[in-house]
């Protein structure tokens, strides 16, 4: 049973494939996680948030940041300016739409990847965060078993 899904948002084009590259690297490390690469999904991202309790969304940031990865909250996404054209329906607008429809997974982690950082470094940091989610899950499962 899939308990965690990692969704990489991007496209096949160089410069817009950062999250896809990181996802490819991560996939080699986790065999029980469902990895999905989405090509500019717009509002269709919501479809892929369904059927699983915990989801990690990874997407490239527009600008380089010092910490290489930023873990964003829904509250931070709320602070973005109001939407929106159909072309401007990006990840933050889509997640806010999902939230409005109460269609977010139980646990959602949004990771913004800094451009200009080595893929393996990004993957390592993502892996640590993803591993923490799988650990939490294992602990919950074992508690339930007791």
């Amino acid at each position: 049973m899939i308990d965690l899904r990692v969704i990489a948002v991007g496209s096949p084009f160089t410069g817009d494939d950062l999250a896809w590259q990181v996802s490819d690297t991560l996939q080699q490390q986790f065999d029980t996680i469902d990895f999905i690469k989405l090509d500019r999904p717009g509002s269709q991202l919501i479809e892929y948030l369904q059927g699983v309790d915990r989801v990690v969304v990874i997407d490239a940031l527009e600008e380089k940041v010092t910490s290489s990865i930023v873990e964003l909250t829904m509250q931070q996404l709320q602070q973005e300016t109001n939407l929106v054209s159909s072309h401007g329906f990006g990840v933050s607008e889509t997640l806010r739409l999902a939230e409005a429809m109460q269609a977010l997974p139980e646990t959602l982690c949004i990771l913004g990847l800094s451009p200009g950082v080595d893929i393996h470094s990004l993957a390592d940091r993502c892996a640590a965060i993803i591993a923490s989610y799988t650990t939490i899950h294992r602990q919950q499962v074992s508690r339930n078993a007791i």
Binding site: N82, L83, V84, L97, A100, M101, Q102, A103
Partner: peptide, 19 residues
């Protein structure tokens, strides 16, 4: 409503159907 996001709070089933 100012946006689909606002509308979705009251009409989630309609927006889901659209999606």
């Amino acid at each position: 409503y100012n946006s689909a996001i606002e509308m979705a709070k009251d009409h989630a089933d309609i927006v889901q159907r659209g999606l």
